[in-house]
């Protein structure tokens, strides 16, 4: 049908969607969407991001730290130096888990993010990967605030603080993709989502040699630390921050463990996303 000259057509047939480009960059568009969503809660993000490092460092430094340092500190360093890398990593773990608990569950059930993306050329695998990349985008500023605080408190040099960042990101990726692989299988929230925080994240923080060396625990509790991504990342953090002694083999073990958890979680997540989004 011919339209009058003044009529502006709604459809412009000269513009064609580029599904080849989406095949390469689909995940990045998912990140873009997540960043836009962050705008609505940026103030809470800033508040907790800046507030919690100071609270923890002040509390532990002036409290527990004073007590511990009356002895000889831990592993020959002041308590705050010992605990700081683990606190940074615990933050990375927490943000990675949170984003992939409510972000993933909500993406299927509340915000419809994934269901809407499904109507575009973006594939379910790209959604899962984009979500992980978007989590890292959120982890960076949270870790950033912490690391700046460490420098301000004189606990770390800027260079050593910066070196903690990639470890934190690897940890967030490992925890994030593992949590995603499970949460994506959950169809209804009957309170089980909060179990992750209560019965996984908190216990892991307590038994991963965060506030005290893992070796302090009785032998039968130490394996909890060995399978805890947080312990592996905290050890790496300590090696980076105050040259805690670590053999090349253990470097490999720690990095290898985190990378494996991230990889297995990612493979499972992609599989679950695919299955769930094929109606």
């Amino acid at each position: 049908m011919t339209a009058p000259a003044t009529y502006k057509a709604v459809i412009d047939h000269t513009v064609v969607a580029d599904h080849q480009k989406v095949r390469r960059w689909g995940w990045a568009h998912v990140v873009e969407h997540m960043v836009l969503r962050m705008r609505s809660y940026v103030s809470t993000m800033l508040l907790t991001g800046i507030g919690s490092p100071f609270l923890y460092l002040l509390g532990l430094g002036f409290g527990l730290g004073v007590l511990v340092d009356q002895g000889e500190g831990i592993e020959g360093v002041p308590y705050l130096t010992f605990v700081a890398p683990a606190l940074v990593m615990a933050t990375a773990m927490q943000v990675g888990a949170q984003e992939n608990t409510y972000g993933v569950f909500g993406g299927f059930k509340w915000t419809n993010m994934f269901n809407a993306m499904r109507l575009s050329p973006v594939s379910p695998g790209q959604m899962a990967m984009g979500m992980q990349a978007g989590t890292l985008v959120r982890v960076v500023p949270m870790l950033g605030f912490y690391l700046v605080a460490l420098v301000l408190f004189g606990i770390a040099t800027p260079l050593r603080a910066l070196a903690m960042l990639p470890i934190g990101l690897l940890l967030a990726l490992a925890v994030g993709s593992a949590v995603m692989a499970w949460v994506a299988t959950q169809k209804d929230d009957r309170g089980q989502l909060s179990f992750i925080e209560r019965f996984v994240i908190v216990p892991l923080t307590l038994f991963s040699g965060t506030y005290f060396p893992l070796e302090t625990l009785p032998g039968y509790l130490q394996p909890i630390g060995w399978i805890s991504p947080l312990w592996h990342a905290a050890e790496l953090g300590r090696a980076v921050m105050y040259d805690m002694a670590m053999s090349p083999l253990m470097w490999l073990v720690h990095i290898g463990f985190l990378a494996s958890v991230a990889a297995i979680g990612a493979v499972l997540s992609v599989r679950v996303f695919r299955r769930r989004l094929d109606g």
């Binding site: 989406v22 568009h29 915000t111």
Partner: peptide, 20 residues
């Protein structure tokens, strides 16, 4: 299946980006 937490214009924008 709109993103209810985003603004009207942003809903169009993010979706358009999914088409490359």
């Amino acid at each position: 299946m709109l993103d209810e937490e985003l603004r009207v214009i942003d809903n169009l924008y993010v979706y358009g980006r999914y088409f490359g």
